[in-house]
């Protein structure tokens, strides 16, 4: 029987809906639809598949504002057994260093885990730094860019990691952390009845910094090792944006003409 399988999860705005105001140099995420970070959904699916095969409890842990609660309930509806939201105003402005610290503390508090799964990176930050960071705080091995996991025997897993030109198969002892490759599986839909239960009856655990034994100075802007000085707009290159319409024959003719003119 597996021990806990912990999945870290973030809520991200859809990248195509984020607006940058070039006058005030600020990012407006307020109009963007939020979603579970796509790679984290793949991590959750990977965790649920391990649970289906080998047992264990899937626990989702997230660090963010209270409005993320419905997204954690969605994870419960998909099949997670429990969910924890670390929510504290002092966490605002955390870079990857305090973020990985906070998540690692929460994971230690949950305890009794065999595997920690994360998305390979978030669709907004895109650093991929948090997964190895969490493993470093916990002092456990990690494997990044993983697309498959199987348990070969108690305490040992075999994972497939994408490398340049292909992949490698690694054997790793539990407990370990694996960051899961975006798009490597198809996340299941929430179960209808479980969804209703999650929304009406499931009690989300909400932890503050004090619950994790962390000081406000260790996290947020103060605890970060990098700071954003300013934002610059990098305009996309000017394109002709010439639309070509007509019958397939006409379009092919026009494209052939353009392509020939390029050589």
């Amino acid at each position: 029987m597996m021990r806990n399988i912990i999945v870290t999860m973030k809520v991200t705005p859809k990248p195509e809906e984020i607006v940058f105001d070039s006058v005030t140099k600020t990012i407006d995420r307020s109009k963007a639809t939020n979603e579970i970070n796509p790679a984290d959904k793949n991590a959750l699916e990977a965790a649920l598949q391990i649970k289906d095969k080998y047992g264990g409890k899937v626990i989702v842990v997230s660090m963010g504002p209270p409005f993320w609660e419905p997204f954690l309930k969605l994870a419960i509806a998909m099949g997670a057994d429990d969910a924890v939201l670390i929510s504290d105003r002092a966490l605002a402005g955390s870079d990857t260093l305090p973020t990985s610290l906070t998540l690692a503390r929460a994971i230690s508090k949950i305890g009794d885990f065999d595997i920690i799964l994360t998305g390979e990176e978030s669709s907004d930050g895109g650093t991929g730094q948090v997964p190895p960071g969490i493993a470093a705080w916990l002092g456990i091995p990690h494997v990044t860019y993983v697309s498959q996991i199987e348990i070969v025997e108690k305490g040992r897993a075999r994972v497939r990691r994408t490398i340049k030109g292909g992949y490698e198969i690694l054997e790793v002892e539990t407990p370990f952390l694996a960051s899961i490759e975006l798009g490597c599986n198809t996340p299941r839909f929430p179960d209808f009845r479980r969804k209703r239960w999650a929304e009406r009856e499931f009690k989300l655990k909400v932890w503050t910094l004090a619950d994790l034994g962390l000081n406000p100075e260790e996290v947020g802007f103060k605890g970060s090792a990098t700071t954003v000085e300013s934002l610059l707009e990098r305009k996309p290159p000017e394109r002709l944006k010439r639309k070509i319409i007509g019958s397939p024959e006409d379009i092919a003719e026009e494209l052939a003409r353009i392509l020939r003119s390029l050589t």
Binding site: I18, G126, S224, A225, T227, E229, S230, L232, E233
Partner: peptide
């Protein structure tokens, strides 16, 4: 770079 490469954050290391 972030958000599809159209925004660039100027980031400075302040610790460590």
């Amino acid at each position: 770079p972030g958000f599809g490469g159209n925004i660039v954050a100027v980031v400075k290391n302040v610790k460590g």
